[in-house]
């Protein structure tokens, strides 16, 4: 018989024991390990998913922020550019104005300096001319010239118009002081008498006369009574000439100032 029933029983027990042992030592630990690993992997995958989602969100936030930043920067840049342009324009204007003012001032100063120089030159020339004239005339003036001057004086006295004559006569009557006769040199007594006689005859009265010498007259004779004056001297002529020249210079100055042409200013704007 091929079946041994004791062996069958023993094998059944053996098999059941093996089932229990393998369950205990093989299947359960292995399955537990696999489950634990799967759980862990699932957890890690979920974690990775969460992290990816988070990263995506953060990336979007970052991109958004980046865009905002770019926009802000562009806006700020534009603003700054505009401001810089305005500032540049303002500075340029200011510089131009300052340059213009400086140029005007300098032109004014130049003109004034030129004027002053001109005037100084003219005064100097004038003074020199008169000094030379005075000197020459003073050198030339002598006794004989004085005589001639006395003649001319007397002649003038005679030729005095009626109005001047009346004024002078009234002046003589009003004062008790003597009439002053000034000359560049001390007059000799003969000529004094001539003048005395001419005055007496002209005003038909005894005129008290005081003779004085005044080198500043250069040459000539002057009659002064109570503020009224009659006479002739080279100094008089020179004075009137000087006055004429001054008036001429003044007129010239004024004509210079008015039509002054605006010169082209040095280029202060480097735009």
């Amino acid at each position: 018989m091929l079946i041994d029933w004791f062996t069958v029983g023993a094998q059944v027990i053996n098999f059941l024991v093996l089932v229990w042992l393998l369950k205990r030592f093989l299947y359960r630990p292995i399955l537990d390990a696999i489950d634990a690993r799967e759980q862990r992997i699932a957890a890690e995958l979920a974690d990775a998913d969460a992290k990816r989602a988070e990263a995506k969100q953060e990336r979007e936030t970052f991109q958004h922020k980046n865009q905002e930043f770019d926009q802000q920067r562009a806006a700020l840049f534009t603003h700054a550019m505009d401001e810089a342009k305005a500032e540049r324009r303002r500075l340029l204007d200011e510089a131009r104005q300052t340059a213009d003012a400086l140029r005007d001032k300098r032109q004014e100063a130049l003109r004034q300096e030129a004027d002053q120089l001109n005037q100084a030159l003219m005064h100097r020339t004038e003074q020199e001319v008169f000094a030379i004239a005075r000197k020459t005339l003073t050198d030339l003036a002598g006794a004989s010239l004085e005589e001639r001057l006395v003649d001319v004086f007397i002649e003038r006295l005679g030729a005095m118009d009626s109005e001047a004559h009346t004024l002078f006569a009234e002046a003589l009557k009003a004062t008790s002081e003597p009439v002053r006769v000034r000359s560049a040199f001390e007059l000799p007594p003969a000529q004094r008498e001539l003048i005395q006689a001419a005055l007496n005859s002209r005003f038909e009265t005894e005129v008290p006369v005081q003779f004085e010498a005044g080198p500043d007259l250069v040459g000539g004779i002057e009659l002064t009574a109570n503020g009224q004056q009659v006479g002739w001297s080279i100094a008089d002529h020179l004075r009137s000439l000087e006055q004429g020249v001054r008036e001429l210079l003044k007129a010239k100055d004024q004509s210079d100032v008015v039509p002054k042409p605006a010169q082209p200013a040095p280029d202060a704007t480097h735009s």
Binding site: Q11, N14, V17, D32
Partner: peptide, 28 residues
């Protein structure tokens, strides 16, 4: 011989699983 060889097989199977499962790794 049947019972003896069965025991031997059981021993090999159980000891083999014991040796391996004694230090099971739950990591990757």
């Amino acid at each position: 011989a049947t019972i003896v060889f069965t025991w031997a097989l059981m021993l090999v199977l159980v000891v083999g699983s014991l040796l391996v499962t004694r230090k099971l790794s739950r990591d990757l």
